[in-house]
Amino acid sequence: MFWVLFLLAAWVGVLVSCTRLLRAASRAAEPAAGSASFPHHDELSLYEAAYLAGGPTRVADLTLLSMQRRRRLLLAHTGWATVVDPVGLDPHERSVLGAFGPDGQSPVPALRAAVAGGEAVRDLAARLGEAGLALTEGVRCGVGEGVRAVRGATVLVLGMAAAALAVPVEGTTTTIVLAWFALPLILTLGCLAIARFDGYLHSSWASPAGQRLLVALDRERGAAESLTAVAVRGVRTIGDPELRAALGYGNRGRIPRQRGQ
């Protein structure tokens, strides 16, 4: 039964990748020593909540929306922003204003990149990491690499199954071969489903302690279309389709065209 060698190769790939993912997930779930620095969700600022829920990009979206709602910035559905008040009230707003050209206009993706890569966001991340609320870059990368490894193992199982079926073996039916390969396939798909489910309910940027604060914050203050809802759940909570379109530029490759084109 030469096809058993293909099955063993598939199992080796599955076990190695799943173990890697489980170890990374265990590291992410470990409580940090400073997690008591924010004992209650009301102590989180909206910027901090945005980072924990969606990372630097979410902080940028929240900053732009906050400035627009206070009539300090105009966001057009075409993906361009115009300065109304050139004075920044905090480091994040100053990052936004610093990205504008001399004419006071800029595409939203450039503003988002300026805020997301700014010193204010780095300081925010460091502070939340020290408090035990945000995952470190190493932990986030470990989980991401674990997920990619399991995906690769899934492809390996399918490839080994195809190779096993291509080898004619007397006394072994196709159903038997597929049944044996279904076991490692179920394991990899199950791991991916759990990882996707956890990533949907909780942020990949927040530690378990940070996730609990986000859930409590969203439950008490996450009213529809509020800044808290945007911080925790993203721009999809915005009811205005033109404003949602403006903030959607730069995502999934959408780049605004120059005005007048």
Results as ranks from 00 to 15, higher is better:
L243G: 11
L213E: 06
R244L: 03
R221N: 09
R221E: 15
E242R: 15
D198V: 15
R233Y: 10
A245E: 10
S226Y: 07
V232E: 03
E242G: 14
G199S: 09
R212P: 06
A224V: 14
P208D: 11
P241M: 01
A216W: 05
S204G: 13
A224T: 13
A216D: 08
A245N: 04
L227G: 11
R236M: 10
H202A: 10
L214R: 02
R212L: 13
A216N: 13
Q211S: 14
R219T: 12
P241S: 10
Y249M: 05
S226L: 03
S203M: 00
L214G: 04
G234L: 03
R244V: 06
L213I: 07
R233C: 09
S207A: 06
Y200N: 08
G248E: 01
Y249G: 01
D218E: 13
F197N: 14
A209E: 15
R219H: 11
R244F: 01
W205N: 04
S226I: 00
L201G: 07
E242Y: 14
P241V: 01
L213M: 06
D198C: 14
R212D: 13
S203T: 00
L243R: 08
G199L: 09
D218N: 12
A224P: 15
L201V: 13
A231Y: 11
A206Y: 00
A231M: 07
V215F: 11
F197C: 12
G234F: 04
W205Q: 04
E220F: 10
F197I: 15
A231K: 09
T228H: 04
P208R: 11
A223N: 10
I238K: 05
A209Q: 08
S207K: 02
L213A: 07
L214Q: 07
T228S: 02
G210K: 02
D240W: 09
D198E: 15
E225I: 05
D218F: 03
L214D: 02
L227N: 13
R212I: 10
I238H: 05
A245Y: 04
R236Q: 15
N251Q: 12
T228I: 03
G199E: 13
S207L: 00
E220Y: 07
E225C: 09
V230S: 07
E242T: 11
S226R: 03
Y249S: 03
G210C: 01
D198W: 13
Y200A: 11
G210L: 01
W205E: 02
V230P: 07
A223H: 14
A231F: 09
G239Q: 13
A229V: 01
G222I: 03
V215L: 14
E220N: 08
P241E: 00
S203H: 00
G248P: 01
F197W: 12
L201I: 12
L243E: 08
P241T: 02
A229Q: 06
Y200D: 07
R196T: 10
L201H: 12
W205S: 03
L227Q: 12
T237G: 10
P208Q: 06
L214C: 06
D198M: 15
S203K: 01
S226P: 02
R196I: 08
A216H: 06
G234V: 02
A206T: 00
D218H: 09
T237V: 12
G234D: 05
G248D: 02
L213D: 08
A224M: 12
R212Q: 15
R221K: 04
L217I: 04
G222Y: 04
V215D: 13
A246I: 01
I238Y: 05
G199W: 10
L213W: 03
A216K: 13
G239D: 14
